[in-house]
Simulated scan of single mutants.
Amino acid sequence: MAKKNAKIHALDGAEMTAEGLSFKGTIMEPVIDKCEGCERAIEVESKTYCPSYAQPAVKWAKGVCNFATHARAGVDKEGKVKVNPLKASKRAARGR
Rank of each mutant, 00 (worst) to 15 (best):
E43Y: 04
A18P: 00
A14G: 12
E29F: 08
I42L: 09
V44G: 05
M16K: 13
E45M: 11
A41C: 15
E36S: 10
L21E: 06
G25P: 05
E15Y: 10
L11T: 03
G25Q: 07
R40N: 13
Y49V: 07
E36N: 12
E15R: 13
T48F: 05
C35I: 12
I8G: 04
M16H: 08
L11A: 08
K34P: 02
I32D: 09
A41H: 05
K47V: 08
L11C: 10
L21F: 02
V31Q: 02
E19L: 06
T26F: 05
E45P: 00
T26W: 02
D12G: 01
D33L: 13
E45L: 08
G20P: 10
L21S: 06
G25T: 05
Y49M: 04
E19A: 13
G13H: 04
D12I: 11
T48I: 15
K7I: 14
I27N: 03
G20C: 08
E15M: 12
A10N: 03
P30T: 13
D33M: 09
K4T: 10
A18T: 11
E36Q: 14
S46W: 14
D33F: 07
L21A: 04
K24F: 07
C50R: 12
E39S: 13
E29G: 01
C38G: 13
E29I: 00
T26R: 10
T48M: 05
G25E: 03
E19G: 02
M28E: 07
F23A: 01
E36F: 07
S22K: 11
A18S: 11
S22V: 09
I27Y: 05
L11F: 08
V44N: 00
A10H: 05
P30S: 13
G25W: 09
R40F: 03
S22W: 01
K24D: 04
Y49A: 09
S22C: 11
D12Y: 03
A18G: 01
A6Q: 14
T26A: 10
C38N: 11
A6K: 15
C38D: 12
G20D: 06
L21R: 03
I8P: 00
R40T: 01
P51M: 10
M28L: 15
G13V: 14
